[in-house]
Write a protein that binds this DNA or RNA. Structure first.
Lengths: 138, 138
DNA sequence: GTATTTGCAAACTATTTGCAGTATT
DNA sequence: AATACTGCAAATAGTTTGCAAATAC
C-alpha cells in the first residue's frame, strides 16, 4: 500500500483512502474493468464509497497517466492498470479483454507522417473477434 | 446510388431509402461520424427519418461488415465507412479522428499467439494524442 | 401478400456535475 | 488553516426497445 500512496503523490494527487484502494484495484486486476466493476470491488473495502467518486477517480487517473483509458468499441469505458505498452484482444460478443504481450522487436516508433498529425502520446492496438467460449455458444 | 443499393442487397439487407442514404453518407464522409452526426446529415434528405433508425442501421451495418465500429475512448460510438485496413489518429481533446494510410509493407498478419485467443476478425490501431489546434488552445 | 423495416414514444443505462461536508497536506 | 476530495442527489447524455403503421421483396 505504501508504494501506491507514493505513486499518487509523485503524480501530485492527494493520497486519500478511496484513491489508494481504487489504484491498487486497477494494478492488481488483469481484466480491464469498467467503473461499475471497480466500484463493486472497492465498495467491499470502503462501504461508504460512492460510484461518483469511482468515475471521477478513474478519469483523473487516466488523464494523469496513472492508468490507461482503453480504446474499445464497448458499451462501457474500460480501464487498464498496466501502463507498459502492450496490445489487447477484445471479444466483441462478451466484451472480455485479454492482454497480448508485445514482441521483442516491437518498439512502437511513430512514422513522421503520424508525428505530423499532432503530439502523439500513445498507440493502442486492438484485435477484434470472437473468443472460443462465445464461438461455441453460437 | 445504384451501387449503394446493390451493396446492401449483396449483404442480404433490404435496400430501403433510409439505409441507402445512411450508407452513402458513411461512404462519402471522411470524419468518422457518430450517430447524431449521421442523423443531422441524412435528416436533410429524409426529414421523416428518426434517430432510432440511424442507431439501428449503424449497428446493423457494423455487424454485417458494411462499415466499421471504431475502437476509440470517445463519448459516442464512432463509425467508419472505409473498410479497407488503415489506422487512425484520435485527438483526445476534440475527439477528431484522422485516417492514416498503411505503409506498403504492412500486411496485418496475426501471430499464432494472437490467433490462439479466438477467431480474429480485424485489427485496429489508434494513435492517441493532441492535435495542433487543441495544443495551441491550451 | 408476406415479411421486414421504420417512426413514435418511452425506457434504460452510463456518466457527469453542483454543492456542502469531510479528509488531506 | 487552507485546499482538495468525497458523498449525496439530481441532471444529462447516449443508446436501445416494444409496438403499430409503412415499405420492400
Amino acid at each position: 500500500m505504501k508504494k501506491i500512496r507514493e505513486e499518487l503523490q509523485q503524480f501530485g494527487l492527494a493520497a486519500t483512502h478511496p484513491r489508494s484502494v481504487i489504484l491498487r484495484c486497477l494494478r492488481e486486476r488483469k481484466d480491464h474493468p469498467d467503473a461499475e466493476t471497480v466500484y463493486q470491488t472497492v465498495h467491499q473495502e470502503i462501504p461508504s464509497l460512492s460510484i461518483d467518486t469511482v468515475y471521477r477517480t478513474l478519469n483523473l487517473f487516466a488523464s494523469s497517466g496513472l492508468i490507461v483509458h482503453l480504446a474499445m468499441p464497448t458499451h462501457r469505458f474500460r480501464f487498464d492498470g498496466g501502463v507498459e505498452p502492450h496490445d489487447h484482444f477484445l471479444c466483441t460478443t462478451c466484451e472480455q479483454i485479454v492482454d497480448i504481450e508485445p514482441e521483442e522487436n516491437d518498439h512502437q516508433v511513430f512514422s513522421e507522417k503520424v508525428a505530423a498529425l499532432g503530439q502523439i502520446l500513445s498507440l493502442q492496438r486492438v484485435y477484434l473477434g470472437t473468443c472460443h467460449a462465445c464461438k461455441k455458444a453460437i
